[in-house]
């Protein structure tokens, strides 16, 4: 089912959580709402679900206006940030809840409910824990139960609020691949909220980046990462080096006097050399090297005192034999320039 969000505005007291937001979510896609905390992403998700009502604007499901429908009428699957599992019910009862509360006429018979719950238990690979209570499960297991519970009612759309926010790094990594796999198997239109750009870029088909209650850019991960529409998006989607600069005849100049433009360079787009190479380079002094990990991170200081972060492969690092305190030459391979209208946050 496709979702269309039209001119949604929502205020909490004097705080504007969403400011005239438009967004289209195509059928069957996995879309990420990405933004820093307070950007309005969770509010938008709750408005789609009907848990929150917008001050103005409308929400359309398959072209039909659903703005005035109740939560139950919208038939959305919602996975809460802290799972919100029913603590007095077992895993089985949690998953069966949505089927058991149906009105008698549309409620499946007991045996059908059992079969459906068992199928979902297999899907989340927790069949052996059907009799456990939520408090007896790990974070990752609770998350999967919450997903199965939401899927049990065969929702038109699956909404997930920070689905991996409360998990440790390793579980998070495994679960997000599993979610992607699950989405490909089940095929239900899904929207998830996250503040983690890596998560959004890796899992989603489409990423909507929110900032201060507005949508900054919508696009495929490759699009938004490589063709950011604003300095905010560039800054938010990964580590950056920020320089103040100016443009003269199509050439960017960066040094301490330059003003008017913001020049961004990703740490992996900076090349370190022992000798100056080509015409574009600047001098820097190495302050710190962190070489434990797949990429080596070098912190340096430019000739005019600005900090600069460079990332390179282990092989390249060994080839250069860099040491702390050494003077090096840095060549930017790829830069992005935005007008310096406001401070990039």
């Amino acid at each position: 089912m496709s979702i269309a969000i039209r001119q949604i505005t929502k205020k909490f007291g004097r705080f504007t959580a969403l400011d005239n937001v438009d967004l289209d979510i195509p059928h069957g896609r996995l879309v990420a709402l990405l933004g820093p905390s307070g950007s309005g992403k969770t509010t938008l998700l709750r408005i789609i679900a009907g848990l929150e009502l917008a001050d103005s604007g409308s929400v359309h499901f398959d072209g039909q206006d659903f703005s005035d429908r109740t939560v139950a009428q919208r038939r959305v699957g919602f996975v809460f940030q802290h799972y919100a599992l029913f603590r007095h019910m077992t895993v089985f009862e949690n998953i069966a809840f949505g089927l058991r509360v149906r009105p008698r006429a549309s409620r499946p018979p007991r045996s059908a409910i059992r079969a459906q719950v068992e199928e979902l238990l297999d899907l989340i690979q927790l069949r052996t824990l059907a009799g456990r209570y939520p408090s007896q499960l790990s974070g990752g297991q609770r998350q999967r139960v919450a997903l199965a519970r939401a899927l049990a009612v065969e929702p038109r759309v699956l909404l997930l609020d920070e689905p991996f926010g409360a998990l440790d790094a390793k579980v998070r990594y495994e679960l997000r691949r599993w979610l992607r796999q699950l989405h490909d198997d089940v095929g239900v239109t899904s929207v998830f909220v996250t503040h983690d750009q890596e998560e959004a870029l890796e899992v989603a088909d489409q990423v909507a980046i929110l900032n201060g209650g507005r949508i900054e850019q919508v696009g495929a991960p490759d699009d938004v990462y490589n063709r950011p529409a604003s300095s905010f998006v560039y800054n938010f989607l990964g580590n950056v080096n920020l320089f103040h600069g100016r443009i003269d005849n199509g050439t960017a100049y960066i040094n301490q006097e330059a003003t008017g433009q913001l020049v961004f360079v990703r740490p992996h787009s900076l090349e370190i050399g022992r000798q100056p190479s080509g015409a574009n380079y600047f001098r820097a002094t190495i302050k710190h090297i962190s070489s434990a990990g797949p990429v080596v991170k070098v912190d340096a200081s430019t000739g005019w005192g600005a900090p600069v972060h460079v990332e390179m492969s282990q092989a390249r690092f060994r080839e250069l034999e860099l040491r702390t305190g050494e003077e090096i030459f840095i060549t930017p391979n790829d830069l992005a320039v935005f007008a310096d209208e406001q401070r990039a946050g």
């Binding site: 679900a49 848990l51 939560v71 139950a72 038939r75 959305v76 699957g77 919602f78 809460f80 802290h82 919100a84 599992l85 029913f86 603590r87 007095h88 809840f97 949505g98 509360v101 149906r102 519970r149 939401a150 049990a152 009612v153």
Partner: peptide, 25 residues
Amino acid sequence: SEEEEAALTLGAGGWQTFLRVTLPN
């Protein structure tokens, strides 16, 4: 009220939510 909200999204009515979720808790 997260558990109550969860019950609502799963299609439970107000009275069902109260009897099955709020009261047992």
